[in-house]
Amino acid sequence: MEGKFEPLVLAFCCNYCPSCSADLAGSAKMQYPSNIRIIKVPCIGTVGTIHILKALENGADGVCLMGCLEGKCEYSSGNYRARKRVQYVKNLLGKLSIEKERLEIYNISAAEARKFCEIAREVTETVRSLGPIPLKIDNSKI
């Protein structure tokens, strides 16, 4: 099958600011790549190592976490925890020889619909340039 590679990126969005900015982007009819699929979570600190790994295992080419601005976490330090966790998982990816750039975390405020779109584009392009995630077995079996 020949064709253009369209990456698939799973975005975990904190239900506070980042989800707001995503909704705002939608209501302001701003464009962002459809490659980004959003899962809303109560706080970005609740995204565990396992959630990130499973997303990649199940066929996402990239994963990004969107948390509230530094110091603005509704639960005091969820976004800080998430940032440290992303570092940890990047390490694990390194051990698997999977590019660390497939995983990234961003801080975004509720109003930044434009930034949300920019991030969405940036992430999509990064992952596009990396190509499909090198898992050679079809996922549907698992």
Partner: peptide
């Protein structure tokens, strides 16, 4: 999850 991914890559 890591073991599975590792095998899938191979």
């Amino acid at each position: 999850s890591m073991i599975r991914m590792d095998r899938k890559m191979a």
